[in-house]
C-alpha cells in the first residue's frame, strides 16, 4: 500500500517513509489502483487494493487510528465514520466506494476543540476502556445533525448499532442529551 499526500498538513506524508522499508521485501506484486479520497477536508491519494475496507486505509495508510476495528462485520459500530455526513461502518465499506465522497473520522470531528459531543463526553466522563467511543461519538453526531434535541427513543433507534462491552450506555445517553444542550447554546452564540 503506497500513499502520496496532496496536502502539506496531511498526516499521511509521514507514512511514505514508514511504508518504504517493507518495499524491499521481495518483488512488487501489488495490483493496486490509485484512488483519491477526501478525508477530514483534505485530499489524499492512495494506491490500494480497491476491495480493502475503508477502515484499514484510514488506519494503516493514513494513520488515523481513532477509528477502531471491532468485528469486521458491521456488527459493533466501533469503525463508524461519516461519508457525506451519513454514518457508515467502515470495516465493510470498500475504499473504492468512498472515492468522491467526504470522509470524516473522529480525528476530523474532534479537530473542532469545541465540538459539543466531545465536550459532553468529557463532562459526563463517558468512557471506560474507551475503545468503542470514537464510533459512539460518530453515530451520535449524525443523530444530532438530523435531530437537534433527540428523545430517548430517537437515541435508542440511532445508537443500536454501536456496542459498548463496558456498557457505558447510561452515560452515552446522558452525554448525547448534554451535547444537544451545548450545541443549542453554541448556535445561540
Amino acid at each position: 500500500m503506497r500513499v502520496a499526500c496532496m496536502d502539506l498538513l496531511c498526516a499521511a506524508r509521514r507514512s511514505i517513509a514508514r511504508v518504504e522499508p517493507s518495499a524491499g521485501q521481495g518483488p512488487e506484486k501489488e495490483h493496486a489502483v490509485s484512488l483519491e479520497l477526501d478525508v477530514n477536508g483534505q485530499r489524499v491519494a492512495v494506491d490500494v487494493d480497491p476491495t480493502t475496507p475503508l477502515l484499514w486505509v484510514l488506519r494503516e495508510a493514513l494513520h488515523l487510528t481513532g477509528t477502531k476495528y471491532g468485528c469486521g462485520a458491521a456488527q459493533c459500530g466501533a469503525c463508524t465514520v461519516h461519508l457525506d455526513g451519513q454514518a457508515v461502518r467502515s470495516c465493510v465499506y470498500p475504499v473504492a466506494a468512498a472515492a468522491g465522497k467526504r470522509v470524516t473520522t473522529i480525528e476530523g470531528l474532534a479537530s473542532d476543540a469545541k465540538n459539543p459531543l466531545v465536550e459532553a463526553w468529557i463532562e459526563v466522563d463517558v468512557p471506560q476502556c474507551g475503545y468503542c467511543q470514537s464510533g459512539q461519538i460518530m453515530s451520535a453526531s449524525v443523530l444530532l445533525a438530523e435531530t437537534s434535541k433527540p428523545t430517548d427513543a430517537q437515541i435508542d433507534a440511532c445508537m443500536g448499532g454501536n456496542v459498548c462491552r463496558c456498557a457505558t450506555y447510561v452515560r452515552i445517553r446522558q452525554a448525547i442529551h448534554r451535547a444537544a444542550e451545548l450545541g443549542a447554546r453554541r448556535e445561540v452564540r
Partner: peptide, 15 residues
C-alpha cells in the same frame, strides 16, 4: 484518560 478517549487519540495495542 477521558479527553484522549473522547478524541480518538488514546493508543491501544492495535493502534
Amino acid at each position: 484518560d477521558t479527553p484522549d478517549k473522547s478524541r480518538g487519540v488514546a493508543k491501544f495495542a492495535i493502534d
